[in-house]
Amino acid sequence: MPTRFRLSAATSWTTEAGPGGTPLLFLGLLFWAFLLLPFAALLLHISWPALAREFSPVGLSPLAVSLLATAAATLVIVLAGTPLAWLLARGPGGVGRVVEALLVIPLLTPPLVIGLLLVYLYGPYSFLGHLLALVRVSATNTLWAVILAEIYEAAPYYIFAAQAAFSQVDPTVEQASLFLGVPPWHTWRRVTLPLAAPGLAVALSMAWARAIGAFGAVIVVAYYPHGLPVATWVALQEQGLPQALPLALLLILVALPFPLFTLWWRWRNRVPHQP
């Protein structure tokens, strides 16, 4: 009688390459439900006429403040953070570890505390506050203050993610470019940057999301002008949940597209692994 072989339960969900799609689908749905159900609740409870009112000229003010401040903060973070992240990935280890440790501090400090520290540093009665006042700039309760607080909250996220992106670029590939007579700056532009770009896109979307949602530090240093997170908080405090929900939805609507776009772009431009 011929012997019959039957796949055991353990092999039914595995392939040669690793676990199959079933566990991934199960865990994915579980986390999806946990993370996204609150958003569904938001959509069910929102007052749509109230949302329309937020797009009136008065309601647009927090949106404009948030978009403007976040765009400026992200620009500063990218311009200053990208070279630093590259140096952390490629520079001398000793100094790099010290700088890393210093960058971890704002990452681990609660945003509210960051706000308090910023008031001490840039407030109207501080030395820097006096210097800024001389050039008619105030780092509290102005758009500049919102930008400053957003930079403090979002910069470490960008720098660490960008450092990871640069670390993934094989230095010997950069070296190959140098041997072909291409100087370091052009090698960075033509090899390092394109290869790190998918990781940098993730870093950028993280920085954007952190900056546009920055609340703890912002509410301390810049109660005015209201950005979307502060405006949502004020609406909640003064008018209740139904009035806060449209602003919350607006915040999500402006915060999400850019990170989603960068994730899509990253997927489109992923560099195939070279054995």
């Binding site: 590939v173 190959a176 140098l178 041997f179 291409v182 100087p183 090899v191 560099v271 195939p272 070279q274």
Partner: peptide
């Protein structure tokens, strides 16, 4: 290195994957 004009090949070809 970039001014030496030397061709350098090693065990792994180090091509530009992009």
């Amino acid at each position: 290195v970039w001014r030496r004009r030397l061709g350098y090949l090693e065990q792994h070809p180090r091509l530009f994957p992009h």
